[in-house]
Design a protein around this nucleic acid. Sequence first.
DNA 1: CGTTCCAACTCAT
DNA 2: CTAGTTGGAACG
Length: 796
Amino acid sequence: MGINGLLTVLKSIQKHTHLRQFAGQTIGVDAYGWLHRGTVGCAMELALDKPCTKYVEYAMHRVRMLIYFGVTPYLVFDGDNLPSKTATEVGRAKRREESKKRGLELYKASKISQAYPEFQKSIDVTPYMARQLIEELKKLDIQYVVSPYEADAQLAYLEKKGIINGILSEDSDLLVYGAKRLITKLDQHGDCIEISRSDFASCRDMTLAGFTDADFRLMAVLSGCDYLASINKIGLKTAHTYVRKYKCVEKIVHMLQFEQKFVVPNGYLERFYEAERTFLHHRVFCPLEKKLVFFTELEDGMKEEDMPYLGKDVSPAIAIGVACGDLDPMTKKQIAVNVAISSRSMPDLHRRRTVASANDLKPSKSIDNFFKPKRQPLAELDPNSLTPSPSQQRLLNMNRNASWEARPISSAPQLGRTASIMPGASQVRTGQSQSRERSSFLERAATLSTFQPPKRIRLCSDVDVSPSSKDDRSPFFVMKPEPSPSIRKRGKTKKARLSDIEVFSDDSVADIFQDMQDPEIGSVDTSTKPAVLPDTTGRSTSRASSPSATLVTEVCDTPIRQKIQIPQSGISQSTTAISVSADDDPGEFRDLFEVHVEHLNNLRNTFSYQRPEKQAAALKALSPANGTPQLPKETAPNQDGVPRLSQVVRRHAQSQHSASLHKTFGTLPSHQQTAALKSLGPSQSSAEKVKLGLAALDSATHSFMGQRPMTPLQQLGKRVLDTSRSSDCISHGGSRSDRPRTGSRVNQVLKVNVQGSEDLLVPKSEDERSEVSEIEDVEPVRRHVDLARFVFTTSA
DNA sequence: CGTTCCAACTCAT
DNA sequence: CTAGTTGGAACG
């Protein structure tokens, strides 16, 4: 439920961004959200107890998307219900039961379409389903943890400890728990929204300047939260004004009691304290200490016996068992894994209907086959694939030692303990293999993110980044500082983006300058970058000097630039930038163009996140011996996954946007043609440019569609996972952002265009054109332009 | 008019 | 019914 209306009120500090911006970082994920969404697609099967693992596929698809964009996922699962929540939980279970009943009735009456929504409502994400996903995560050596209670608290804790660098969740509660960076609304393309705690001060719809974490929490709880319903007629706004005025609960409640408007229930204050402490001292699993700890340690005089609402403590052995997914977080009993792994079935332990169907499930076939071995723990891979700085080296060694120690000390005794707790339980695996798995789980779960933020935070010195010092920073330091004015880094912030209009690149400076034909660009770029100042709105609005103003003007008039890339070579990628004028716009033409770009974009994404096997299959389907693309047949529905991708491809082919582009152009009146040509390139021989530009598009399309030799693309297919993991793509190993990146995925800048100074630079040769790869940033580019307009109009 | 509250929709396939 | 969002009714 979260806090009603919180995200709406924080609109002004929501930054539209992309997963790409978090490359090299470890991002914690609220896994239940994904699982729940994944169940929508197979609600029917689940309700009818049919075998189904679509939800695992859905979640894994997202996991692969993160990896594709260089993000290291760290999945966090929900655990037991808090005592305070059991009442609502019972109610939910009841409603689910009713929905299922209704659904089944409708189903029996063959009213399938009416039954489906009922089934959807009846779905409960079970620990068993989480366990299935965990099994997949293990195969890819992806970090995860099952929280003792709420995943929100666990996520915030991991972030506090520096184990993760941000939190991917839809739940606004995270901010109440003190999350520093919340990423929400991730869509299938990787677009998402970032909310930073440090931007709170610049929120426009609500004055949060001077609000401490405690003030914020006070406001949130007053306005109504999961642990305490609000006083009638008190919403976020009212709570906010009272917190601003009186700051402390006692006073606020006291004042509220004087107002006739509000009725403060008996014992509200006491329940408020409980709710507040539930946020503050939530039990979490600490992967470093390998036991349950409080999110915030109890202060002197607080006794945990007095706070039953925090849930029970458990022994480290059980805590570890739950955390690694072996034990059901509620019953603390062994969770049955699928038949392929367990030698025996364990009917007595199946605590829910979905669990009871475990024996019928045969995910071993559908899933196991797809992830063949080639396991390589990230922790081992990273140090070898780059040269860490001394401080990073120290960090790595520290972690390595910690995990080595962990084995004899914590895992051996814990095994005996765990086994003795469940004397009757059939062992799924041998004790030794379980012990081994657990210690490797702990090793992974406790791995600190090696990502090094631009400045300030010293990850190497201490894992616990003191939270106190950062929140009261000056509003002018809310932005993460640029590491160096000359570097185009990943993790760009909205403010830094203006400069992106000049240069799209992931290259090192040297690469950029090498590629650059016009030296002027570099100077423009470097000189303007420092002029970008954060302002109170969290958006770039003001520029200090008059040259900036000039630039802003230019930016506004500068053609929209679109980056056209299609995956072709896994090693190097190049970019064709195609410019379309924002004004002087033959609308229809540009719209078509953008639609085309978007289609390619979708195509690329759909392809990129597929399992390598699926990609290979899709490629095979698209690339027959004769070289002509033979799109897969309409049917062949049950070939796992392949139809879906090929359908997309087919749809795209049928839409023939390239063709319609040409056609539309041909039918335009001549003055509009001229305008269109002009819009694609400001100067000479524009007709040629349009042809080249369109040819580039087509060639990109066609190469993806299989009309060109497929070898590089096939390579990519095989390499998607490897590439996105390896250091030449991502700064996994805690790379310093100004480290020269050798062999990086080069987004070659083919075009840098500041109005009036140079031309559209399309690939000159056939070779270059065939290298065109990957599409992205259609939306962001639009946003750039919007932003530029905004800057211009407000600074004038 | 601002605010709170509620019901319907989104998500996915 | 995971949570959020949106639109609209019902208040003061």
